[in-house]
Design a protein around this nucleic acid. Structure first.
Lengths: 205, 205
DNA sequence: CATTGCATCATCCGTTTGGGTGAGACTTTT
DNA sequence: AAAAGTCTCACCCAAACGGATGATGCAATG
């Protein structure tokens, strides 16, 4: 029995590649979507066994949000995340959103097929080089930042001074300092540069 | 007459996609390479009209170096850069290394084909949304940093303090401050965070 | 309704950073 | 040989930052 798959990627070339590589006795590609919104609409209609989804989708909702929306469908397809990057925060986000697995784009085609079949069977499937990191991430999850803190962190990452952030956010410098102090504590750092670094490394921003 | 093309990308899926998308009356894919080294070796042997090359090639030499090596062949193939990112420094690097053009991966297949044909004909071909930026980059080229300065900048971007950099580089803090002062001047910034930001934005690091 | 969490602001204080200036040693270029 | 560029270092000073502590208002949670 063949497993039906919906492809979600904003690059036409990648979709064609996946189609070419996946189509076989055991896997049948029933549709393609370029955005998360399109993916959800198509999945609701086509009922694929598995949705193979990029985490980075140019415009619109991102891969994590798409995963969550797909998993809320009835019946819910298994969602397999396929992407170029291995950012901890996003792996965890996708898994938490109900993804069955996570593969890097540079793996061999047969690994992807294997992942699809296992995802269709209800298995979890993680690229070996990532399993470790995911587990580590689960052991020391990054403390969650509040919306405001993320906002400050983003400004911080653009190189803004406290004064500039205060102006941009319509608050006093004291408030900005307060937010930054909290951010530093949560990220276990003691300088803006290091905060930027860990924020980027963990995919927090 | 058909134009012969060599594909260079570290992702098998992308290569398959490109092959599926490009193969036509006017374009014939004569080979695929996963690394820059492999690309040069194959190109020397297959003499393709055009090499379609990703800038980011997991292991080994990068796209810019590959471009330079390919252009040094006799006869030299036209090199068309195809990538996901639009980092100014790399665009310029590839153009300087002799690339005929630069396309983003999310463009439509027929745009890629058009780019290949024009590259084969000796034209320059830039994705429209990039041409502006390239020209801007040429008008305000980033002042070149010395090796030492780049080294300091990299450390800076990891969040290191002056003291830590001094230790890491076996110099005094005064020296580190001196380098940083020069970096700031060259990048026209006045804080470490902003230096990190422009360095990343311009692909300097 | 009490508690908790968030965002806001303040003051004090020590440390780090950034800016200016100058200078010696070594290499490459002219 | 002179000039230019790089890397190294030092000193001074003002501004920005980071840490500690505490307080207010407000919404959500229990």
């Amino acid at each position: 029995m063949t497993t039906t798959v919906l492809l979600v990627d904003d690059h036409p070339v990648v979709r064609s590649g996946l189609r070419a590589v996946l189509e076989s006795d055991s896997v049948h590609v029933v549709g393609e979507a370029a955005t998360g919104e399109e993916a959800v609409a198509l999945a609701a209609h086509l009922h694929p066994d598995v949705v193979l989804c990029d985490l980075r989708l140019g415009a619109g909702i991102d891969g994590v949000q798409t995963t969550a929306a797909l998993r809320a469908l009835e019946p819910a397809p298994a969602v397999l995340i396929l992407t170029t990057f291995d950012r901890d925060a996003e792996i965890l986000g996708a898994i938490e959103a109900g993804a069955a697995g996570y593969l890097l784009k540079d793996v061999a085609p047969d690994v992807i097929i294997e992942g699809i079949l296992r995802a269709a069977g209800g298995d979890m499937f993680l690229a070996p080089d990532l399993a470790d990191r995911v587990l580590k991430g689960m052991r020391n999850p990054l403390p969650k930042l509040t919306e405001r803190e993320v906002e400050v962190l983003r400004l911080l990452a653009t190189g803004a001074s406290n004064k500039e952030m205060a102006r941009a956010l319509f608050v006093t410098e004291a408030t900005v300092k307060s937010h930054i102090a909290h951010i530093f504590t949560k990220l276990s750092v003691d300088s803006r540069s290091r905060a930027i670094h860990v924020a980027q490394e963990t995919g927090l921003i």
